[in-house]
Amino acid sequence: MKVVLRNPRREIELAGPMSVVALLNKLELKREAVLVIQDGTIVPGDATLADSDVVEVRPVISGGAV
């Protein structure tokens, strides 16, 4: 599957199927810090991604002063 990462934007290829939890573990990301997005909607944490899937892993913590 193709995984699009952000900040900076880049793409990686991983072999599926793989659960969302396993994907985030592999990328060493905390679930609370990101959203996994596919076709304009959110992929739930318990879903399994297929080898043909394209997903974006988007960070949600913004860092500006307020």
């Binding site: 952000r6 900040n7 810090a33 959203l35 304009g40 909607t41 959110i42 988007r58 960070p59 949600v60």
Partner: peptide
Amino acid sequence: ERETAAYCVLRGIDYIVQ
């Protein structure tokens, strides 16, 4: 902030992720 980001995704709002 995870919820405000999710709100934008689910509403189709194209915000700056950078």
